[in-house]
Design a protein around this nucleic acid. Structure first.
Lengths: 224, 224
DNA sequence: ACTCGGCGTCAAGATCGCGTCAAGATCCGC
DNA sequence: GCGGATCTTGACGCGATCTTGACGCCGAGT
């Protein structure tokens, strides 16, 4: 399981990061300051670090240096828009990538994935293969009979949640909650629409699905 | 045993929560206000907290903060739909999950399981096996001689209630109450119809049931 | 032996959930 | 600001599921 360390002084941001990363199957640790971040690193080397620059104790760049001094762990830097100088400095110092606050979660996740991939990953490529369909979750690449199939972000998100529990049941409310967030727990028509789209794109016979199975009244599952 | 703390100012809700959680094997404590909730937390750290926002003394968000300040216990928030969105948003930053009232019990239970699973606790898989019949309650998968048997939502619900008390008697009114809700306590013909269906699908000889036993005039039980 | 209550069985009608489609609304890159 | 992709929303038909009523059987009580 990929291990991600998130470092930020704002607990709210740590929280959202934590939730979103965990929801995508990462193992997450958080740190509110540079000191504890370095401590965690010493205990267990992360596969990627998400690092805010504005920390209460050490400077973010200092943390970055210390990290780099004896490890090649990829670092994605978070920075407020106005700290442009720091940003440059951070990149100089070896940050792999950066995202400016306020950031879009999808974008950050994409960068995290990219950072992991660039360093060879932790050897946890996440691929589901069924018949002539191949779903590479980490790379976000879907093929059918070798031909590429384009999936929209929402479609990917659904596939991801289902694939993480391959074969097992995912309840409607749960799926809605994971993909659309809280408050959408009852919008089951979304599921109907998107599952239909996924089937049209991926199933041999969309009317007789073999991949995306419906458990009427309960939820869906991805059969492998 | 997993320890759940439920916090709500409405005794009725606390009651249903308590009953349902206990029925599923959780150890439950309840608190009617923020102060007592925090007190309980100090005495014994729960594995998960279910927290309503509208508390008589402290604000729910305040309780959440206090909880968060020195513990990473997962919190599932209950919130009424009409409460302002920004409150919900603020919550979103601190809570692991939330469910809007009026909530579906199954849904809430799913969230509680998810919250526990996320923090390493084990979600309890629930499987009943008798002869060549296998009933996986959490996954909603039934097999007979290895072959999958499809059960409808209501059938599952009945199986679930019976399975939870494996072997022990469940009174008619009780079963009706659990599955169809209050006001159906006398519709015993429902039970006759559905039990017959279950037997037809699962029993070797539906006329001579060995799984779903009738106690005439009293109720039913699932023999294991 | 007859009656009666409770149960299992069956089938028809009502209802619900799902898949499908299409028309706005919204987002995003150019 | 424009145009295409994507997401949201509403409507509709169909099949599965649930509800409802009727009937016959069996055992207990009279």
């Amino acid at each position: 399981m990929t291990f991600v360390l998130a470092v930020d002084d704002d607990p709210a941001i740590l929280r959202t990061l934590s939730i979103n990363l965990r929801a995508r199957g990462y193992d997450v640790e958080t740190a509110g300051d540079g000191r504890s971040a370095l401590q965690i690193v010493q205990e267990r080397m992360p596969d990627v670090v998400i690092l805010d620059l504005g920390l209460p104790d050490l400077d973010g760049v200092a943390v970055l240096k210390r990290l780099r001094s004896h490890a090649q762990v990829p670092v994605v830097v978070l920075s407020a828009r106005h700290e442009s100088d720091d940003k440059v400095e951070a990149l100089d110092e070896g940050a792999d990538d950066y995202v400016t606050k306020p950031f879009d979660m999808e974008e950050l996740l994409a960068r995290v994935r990219a950072a992991i991939r660039r360093t060879g990953g932790d050897g946890a490529p996440f691929v589901v293969e069924v018949g002539d369909v191949r779903l590479d979750i980490t790379e976000r690449q879907a093929t059918r009979n070798g031909e590429e199939v384009r999936l929209t972000p929402t479609e990917w998100h659904i596939v991801e949640v289902l694939a993480r529990r391959e074969g097992r049941l995912v309840r409607q409310a749960e799926l809605l909650h994971e993909v659309w967030g809280p408050g959408y727990d009852r919008e089951t028509n979304y599921l109907r629409v998107f599952l239909a789209q996924l089937r049209r794109k991926l199933e041999a016979d969309p009317a007789r699905p073999t991949l995306f199975i419906t458990d009427p009244g309960i939820g869906y599952r991805l059969v492998v």
